[in-house]
Structures are given as structure tokens and as C-alpha cells.
């Protein structure tokens, strides 16, 4: 093949490589949330009630323990699963039963999830069950959620407190 054609071929190869790189290295754009939407994050790290409540030791039981370890209460380790439910304007966002962490289910119940939420004002209702029962909730809270497009709000569920943190634009 003649020299000019070879040079054209080689140039085309490297331009082709550059074009392929260029085509995918900075785009096409991807939208993690749709336009006109914000994000609601739920982060829960919640210590639920014990499955079996602690009970005081009888005097006999206490005396049976070594003198340095004479506690007054005995507690089993297991904790109840935590049921969490979120409703946005009455519509169910999530309802999840989270078991307590750890081998003996004695840790916190952890949950992190996100939801795309249309911009605007919403009613957010959180219900939580963290005692060993089958129905009903132990805690219910309602918040007003104001989100603009691209905003992220955080609902943080701790051991005792629940906070909704939304970007303050005022």
C-alpha cells in the first residue's frame, strides 16, 4: 500500500481511538434523579426494645454469682426487629422490617435508603414499631417536607429522636 494511504490509515486509527474515548469519557449525561425531583434519604440507626425485658435478680441468684459480679438485673441480649414505615402524602414509600444487627441481634437496626420525590411541599409520615408486638406502632411522626429540584432531605431516625433535615433556603 502506498505511503500516503498508510499514513491516512494510521492517522484515522488514532483519531478513531480518540473519538471513541471522547464519546464515552465525559458523557452522555446520566441523571441520578429526574429533573424536577429532589431526594429524600432515610437513615436509621435505632436501638429497639429488648425481646425479653430485664428482670431483677432474686437474692439467691445474686448470691450464687461471684462477689465481684453481683449485678442486680439480668437481661437477655436479643432485641426486637424494627418496623419502619414511611408515607409521603399518604402513599407508602417504604415499609421494612429490620432485624437488629449482631450475632445475638443485640445491636441497632440499620437502614439507609433514598427516594426520588417531586419538588414541592409534601406531608411525610413516619411510623415505627420497635417492641415485640405484631401490630400497631410505638412511634408516629409527621413532617412537612419542602424540596426543590435537586435538593436532598434527610430523615434521621436515631435511638430516641427522629429529625427531618431539609436544605434551608431562606
Amino acid at each position: 500500500m502506498s505511503r500516503p494511504i498508510r499514513i491516512i490509515g494510521q492517522t484515522a486509527t488514532w483519531l478513531g481511538l480518540a473519538a471513541l474515548v471522547a464519546a464515552l469519557a465525559q458523557g452522555p449525561a446520566f441523571s441520578p434523579v429526574a429533573d424536577g425531583h429532589g431526594e429524600l434519604r432515610l437513615s436509621m440507626a435505632h436501638l429497639a426494645e429488648r425481646l425479653v425485658p430485664c428482670r431483677p435478680l432474686t437474692e439467691e441468684e445474686r448470691l450464687a454469682l461471684p462477689p465481684t459480679r453481683r449485678v442486680t438485673e439480668i437481661c437477655e441480649r436479643g432485641r426486637s426487629p424494627t418496623v419502619i414505615e414511611l408515607r409521603l402524602d399518604g402513599e407508602l414509600l417504604v415499609r421494612e422490617t429490620v432485624t437488629a444487627a449482631g450475632w445475638h441481634n443485640d445491636g441497632r437496626a440499620y437502614l439507609v435508603t433514598t427516594f426520588a420525590v417531586p419538588a414541592g411541599e409534601h406531608r411525610l409520615r413516619m411510623s415505627l414499631r420497635d417492641t415485640p408486638r405484631d401490630e400497631g406502632f410505638d412511634m408516629e411522626k409527621e413532617f412537612t417536607l419542602r424540596l426543590e429540584s435537586g435538593d436532598a432531605a434527610l430523615l434521621e431516625v436515631g435511638d430516641g429522636d427522629v429529625r427531618l433535615k431539609a436544605p434551608d433556603r431562606h
Binding site: F30, E39, S149, D151
Partner: peptide
């Protein structure tokens, strides 16, 4: 900025 969520990203698909 974690108070925001990116709406459009020019990602590196590779």
C-alpha cells in the same frame, strides 16, 4: 454537596 443530589452527570462510561 450532600444537601443536594446531582440532577445530571457527565459520567465516564468506561
Amino acid at each position: 454537596d450532600l444537601d443536594r443530589v446531582p440532577v445530571s452527570l457527565d459520567i465516564d462510561w468506561f
